[in-house]
């Protein structure tokens, strides 16, 4: 009659020893080898603590209806300018020219956050005046909600200098973010919720473009107008205004941030345990080999009695 295995189950074999013995020392040594080296393996392969990480968010951007515009005219030192700042306009008394501004923010996907800005500006000019350059600062309100509740005032700057007198200047671009350091993972961040242009100042230096940019670029989080597609059209007809037309898209951005405690622990744990499993398996075999062959003397307690086997 053929014999077959009808049932099986593992037996537990116990090795006993005193506290101060070679076997205890060996056990301690193996345990240390099992649990500590995975830490070094994980740490030395870099990325154990995820100190910074990326996430994507669609920012809440609004055009603040504030701007600073300089139109460079033909002739040395000729320009017309306009800002939505009363004090600036008073400074620029002789060069001040008030344009007609139209702006609209679209929300095509109706998520409550604007998707793009459609901006139009018509600057009245005399027939004798020729526009050769544009400097335009648009001021935006920039908000993030997902991790850090960040609010800041930011700008989009468009600059163009032409050699031929223009009639229309068209800008197509995105408002992108430029980040120098990670933002926090929680809390309210109002560090940059200050005016880019100090509208209360009566001093001319506050409205100097380079001074505005100097203080702005010293921030760690700024926005810029990424507009490689600018079109300068020549030929302005008699009694026609100079037109600036811009379509600026607000885009989803990738932000660098410092994760919180539990996020660090979670990813550290995942990495450590995955290496530890290999070590556990390997040193389990080592232990079985050592104690089974009595390389260190122990008392072996077998789970069955000798007489029953006979």
């Amino acid at each position: 009659m053929a014999v077959y295995e009808v049932f099986s189950h593992p037996e537990l074999r116990r090795y006993k020893t005193s506290i101060c013995s070679k076997a205890s020392l060996m056990m301690l040594f193996i345990l240390a080898l099992t649990f500590i080296p995975p830490l070094f393996v994980v740490y030395r392969s870099y990325g154990f603590w995820r100190k910074t990480d990326y996430y994507r968010e669609y920012p809440d951007i609004h055009f603040k209806r504030e701007l600073l515009l300089v139109l460079e005219l033909e002739g040395e030192g000729n320009y017309v300018t306009y800002g939505t700042f009363q004090k600036y306009n008073q400074l620029q008394n002789a060069h001040l020219r008030v344009p007609l501004i139209t702006s609209r923010e679209t929300d095509t996907n109706r998520d409550g956050k604007p998707d793009s800005l459609i901006f139009n500006l018509e600057m009245p000019l005399l027939d004798s005046e020729n526009v050769l350059g544009v400097k335009l600062i648009l001021i935006f309100d920039y908000k993030l909600h997902q991790f850090s509740s960040l609010t800041m005032e930011s700008i989009g700057y468009a600059n163009y200098d032409a050699i031929k007198p223009g009639g229309k200047f068209e800008i197509l671009g995105d408002l992108r973010v430029n980040q120098k350091e990670p933002i926090g993972y929680r809390g309210v961040d109002n560090r940059y919720n200050t005016s880019v242009i100090d509208s209360t100042s009566v001093y001319a230096e506050s409205y100097d473009f380079i001074n505005i940019f100097k203080s702005y670029t010293s921030r760690n989080l700024t926005t810029y107008l990424n507009a490689p597609y600018m079109v300068w059209s020549t030929g302005r007809g008699a009694s026609q205004p100079f037109v600036i037309s811009a379509t600026i898209n607000y885009v989803e951005e990738q932000f660098l941030y410092t994760p919180g405690f539990w996020y660090l622990i979670k990813w550290g744990w995942v990495q450590y345990v995955s290496v530890l499993l290999i070590f556990l398996f390997f040193f389990d075999r080592v232990k079985v080999f050592i104690y089974q062959n009595q390389l260190v003397p122990t008392m072996v307690e077998k789970p069955w009695r000798e007489e029953k086997m006979k």
């Binding site: 209806r65 306009y82 939505t84 001040l96 020219r97 008030v98 344009p99 007609l100 501004i101 139209t102 702006s103 609209r104």
Partner: peptide, 8 residues
């Protein structure tokens, strides 16, 4: 369309 017009 938000607008702003001005004159002197």
């Amino acid at each position: 369309e938000d607008m702003r017009s001005g004159c002197l």
